[in-house]
Structures are given as C-alpha cells and as structure tokens.
C-alpha cells in the first residue's frame, strides 16, 4: 500500500512537471506580456528594461529553470500585474474556491447517490422517469446559461437570494447549486444504472432466494458494489468542477481562483497563471489519489501492491 502511494506521488510529480512546462510555454507563446503592461507608445528602451527586470529576455527554457529553482526555494515569482508575490495573490483566493467547489461536490454526491438509488429502487415509476428526464436536462444545459437564469429568477424576480458575491451562506447557494448540476446528473445516472446492474447479478438473486429482505440487499450488498464506478466517476468530475468553477465564479462574482485565473490569462500575468495551475493540478492529482484509495475501503478485494 505504502509502495503504491509513493509510486503514485512520484507519477504525480512528473505530471505536475509536465503541466507546468506546458503552461509555461503556452502562456508565453500566446503573446508578449510586455506590450500589455507598458504604454502603447513605449520606447524600445522601456521594453528592454521591462523584459530584463522580469527575466523575460532569457530563453524560455532558462526562464523555466529559474522558475523551478525559485519554487524549490519557496519563491514562486512576483505577479506582473499586482506587483506582489504570486503565491500571496493565489492564497488569498484559494479559500473561496475550496468553499465553492467542495460545497458543490458534496451536494452533487449526496443528492446524486440518494436520488440515483431511489430512482433504481422505484425503477419504472413516475418518480424514476421524472428524475431521469431532469437529470438529462440538467446535464445538457450550459452552466453559464443556468447561472444567468438562476440570477434572473431567484435574485432579480423573486428576490430570495443575493445576485452574486461571497457574503454568507445565502450567497453560496446559487453558485454551488449551478456548479453542482453537471456532476450531480452524472453521479445520479451512474448510481442508478450501476445499482440496476448489481441487482440483476447472480449473487443478488441468490440473496433473494435465501429470503434476505429487499432493503437489506439494497443497502448492505448492492450499494457497496454499485458505488465503485460512481467513485471513479467522482474523481473525474472533480476536474470538471474546477473547470466549471472558472465560469461560475465569473458570473456570480465569486472571488476565487477561477475568476483570478481568467483575469490573469487576459493580462498575461505569467507568474500567477503558473502558480494557479500548479495549485489546481496538485489539488486534482491528490484528490484523485484519495479517490483511488477509497476503492480499498469500499471493495476489500481491491489491493494495491
């Protein structure tokens, strides 16, 4: 087990290195930040001085090396736009993003699994049909549209919730719910089909023949086995959630990492982009590792050597 974790952490380090290299080169290849930061009629001397000051006059690979070395020493670079340490800019925004994505994920998981189970339990009923239609609808709606509609209905028309911002529990409801819709429907449908599949399996038939009550079969036997593909899906959905947060945060004016990343890409604030990507990649990789380890808990047959 320990070996497995160490191996996965090693792989994670390589993945993060690759992601960083890619974003480092891509951000620089997409345009020169110098011209965005300086006056339009800046002289060649001003441009040269700016590049020298921020090390942009070095070859990209040298800049990357310097970035890596700095990072190992705890220096993540200085934001070109905010003129403050990039890590500080990121850390200020991190709690908001964690709050939003974890709430959305928790909501998607609890509702998705519960509704999926009930839907499977009452398969073919009106409840099941409505839930399936709604799930497909929610999964097909673009997140930004849903967000704007939610603001229009619940804030502008009904006045129940604040339109946007991060100001207490009420302001979390709309962003979390809209962000949760996509993973929720995925989890719901996966839970339903997985449970249905399990219920049809030989061992469940055997349990029935033995006279085990239906609810015990569902809760104690079927659910546990049915959850394995759901857990795998959750790992994947976390990535979607981070991506979705970028748009959700912008529309709901949620002061998190997502809206910061958009601003930083627009203004080509390389250091903030790099550190932001580093954080998001690390978070995703660690969460996925946690998901893999969860398999062992749910299914004792799975052993990582």
């Amino acid at each position: 087990m320990l070996n497995y974790i160490l191996k996965r952490l090693g792989l994670a380090a390589i993945t993060i290195f690759g992601v960083l290299l890619l974003i480092f080169i891509a951000a620089r290849a997409s345009g020169d930040v110098t011209l965005l930061m300086l006056p339009q009629d800046a002289t060649d001397e001003m441009i040269a001085a700016f590049r020298a000051q921020h090390g942009l006059d070095q070859p990209v690979i040298v800049q990357f090396w310097q970035f890596l070395m700095g990072m190992l020493g705890g220096d993540f670079g200085t934001s070109l736009r905010y003129q403050r340490p990039a890590i500080e800019v990121i850390l200020q925004r991190l709690p908001a993003t964690l709050e939003l994505t974890l709430s959305a994920f928790g909501l998607a998981l609890v509702l998705g699994v519960t509704l999926g189970m009930l839907s499977a339990y009452w398969r073919g009923s009106v409840f099941d049909r409505v839930i399936r239609v709604v799930a497909i609808m929610l999964q097909s709606m673009p997140g930004f549209w849903l967000a704007i509609m939610a603001i229009l209905v619940f804030a502008v028309t009904l006045g129940w919730l604040p339109t946007s911002g991060r100001n207490g529990f009420l302001s979390l409801i709309m962003p979390a719910v809209t962000l949760a819709t996509f993973p929720l429907s995925g989890i719901l449908r996966m839970t339903r089909s997985s449970i249905l599949e399990t219920i049809e399996s030989e061992y469940v038939k055997f349990l029935r023949i033995k006279g085990v009550p239906e609810s015990t079969i569902l809760w104690r036997h079927a659910l546990r086995n049915a959850l394995i593909p759901v857990i795998a899906l959750c790992g994947l959905q976390l990535g979607n959630l981070m991506g979705g947060a970028v748009i959700t945060e912008t529309i709901f004016n949620w002061p998190g990492l997502g809206s910061l990343m958009i601003e930083s890409f627009v203004s080509r604030d390389y250091p903030v982009i790099q550190v932001g990507v580093l954080f998001i990649a690390t978070m995703l990789i660690l969460l996925n590792l946690a998901v893999d380890l969860l398999f062992c808990v749910v299914d004792p047959r799975i052993r990582y050597a």
Binding site: T163, S164, N253
Partner: peptide
C-alpha cells in the same frame, strides 16, 4: 465599490437594488 467583471451580473445587482 464592488468589482464585478460580468456585465449581466452588474445589471442584476442594479435591478435587485444591491
């Protein structure tokens, strides 16, 4: 001063009286 990047959100805030 509230910093709101998205135009439709700014308008919604005005319409709700926020």
């Amino acid at each position: 001063f509230r910093f709101v990047r998205e135009a439709s959100t700014r308008l919604a805030q005005l319409q709700t009286g926020e």
